[in-house]
């Protein structure tokens, strides 16, 4: 009975994981395919690194990747600064006029259709340019601003959740011992929510890195991000170098996730070990 159940669990797991990861796995394999046709496996010349080589000689693609990286970094940093301030206001000052409204409006972009966010931002930027002369045209700056508006919402949610678990009296204790409010924020609150801010930064980075819809509304002719480039290439038919590019991206993401996982596991083990030590000593 138990054995049968174990087999069933394993089977269910296999089906689930293959549903999630088989397509990605197939893509990785096809990135080493020598054939120019994506769906035909050229067994004579495969595997090959030809597409990877081509990738690193594709100037347009490298430019797009570089731009996406810059925008994602600027966006993540901006979203984390604004998002943390907003989360702090919402979590620590529970009685100010318009708090409920503020809470709703800051997190609304998460559920707002991207098409609407993109279109309204485009209208805003055009109107601003006409009346104030800024921003001049659309490009990296407008894309970054647009990304901050929606990725900030995610940072707020993450940081707010973490702040809620930080005992308020820890901050009060610091103030009681003579630290002014800003100092308390810098030396007590910030270190305690650093991990949430870091994960907010990573999430905001990824959201910006793969955003296509909003970007298409607010980008200009001279600014093509990586998702835009990939999308335009795919429209002309999938070429194998996209597989290679995607494989590299998957590799980077996997490395990030795995190392973060290992780090967290070790921290948790250390914490448990320390608690155990303290307990045994006092007993």
């Amino acid at each position: 009975m138990n054995e049968r159940r174990a087999g069933l669990v394993l089977g269910a797991m296999a089906v689930g994981f293959s549903f999630l990861y088989l397509p990605i796995f197939a893509m990785i394999i096809y990135s080493f395919n020598a054939s120019r046709l994506v769906t035909v496996w050229d067994s004579a010349n495969s595997p090959t690194l030809a597409w990877y080589r081509e990738l690193f000689h594709n100037g347009a693609l490298l430019d797009a990747a570089r731009l996406s990286f810059k925008i994602a970094t600027a966006n993540a940093t901006g979203a984390v600064i604004l998002g943390t301030l907003a989360a702090f206001a919402l979590e620590r000052y529970r009685r100010f006029r318009g708090r409920a409204m503020f809470n709703l409006l800051t997190t609304a972009p998460m559920v707002l259709p991207e098409v609407i966010t993109g279109l309204s931002l485009l209208l805003l930027f055009v109107a601003l340019e006409q009346t104030m002369g800024w921003p001049r045209g659309r490009g990296a700056v407008t894309i970054t601003i647009a990304h901050i508006t929606f990725s900030m919402a995610y940072v707020i949610v993450i940081v707010k959740a973490r702040l809620a678990t930080v005992d308020r009296s820890i901050e009060e204790a610091a103030m009681d011992l003579g630290a002014r409010p800003w100092k308390v924020f810098a030396v007590i609150t910030l270190p305690l929510i650093a991990s949430a801010i870091a994960s907010g930064w990573v999430l905001a980075f990824i959201l910006s890195w793969d955003d296509l819809v909003i970007t298409s509304f607010v980008s200009g002719p001279s600014s093509t991000t990586l998702p835009q480039l990939v999308f335009s290439k795919v429209r002309l038919g999938v070429s194998p170098d996209i597989n290679a590019l995607a494989t590299l991206l998957v590799l980077v993401v996997t490395a990030c996730v795995v190392s973060a996982g290992i780090y967290m596991l070790q921290a948790e083990r250390k914490r448990l070990h320390d608690a155990q030590m303290a307990f045994e000593e006092s007993a």
Binding site: D167, S169, I170, E172, A173, A174, M175, D176, L177, G178, A179, R180, I188, P191, L192
Partner: peptide, 20 residues
């Protein structure tokens, strides 16, 4: 007078030690 300027200190129920 704000808490950070009072000649008063407090021991909190939860102790409120700085965990880091």
């Amino acid at each position: 007078v704000p808490p950070y300027e009072r000649p008063v200190n407090m021991m909190f129920q939860s102790y409120a030690l700085f965990p880091h």
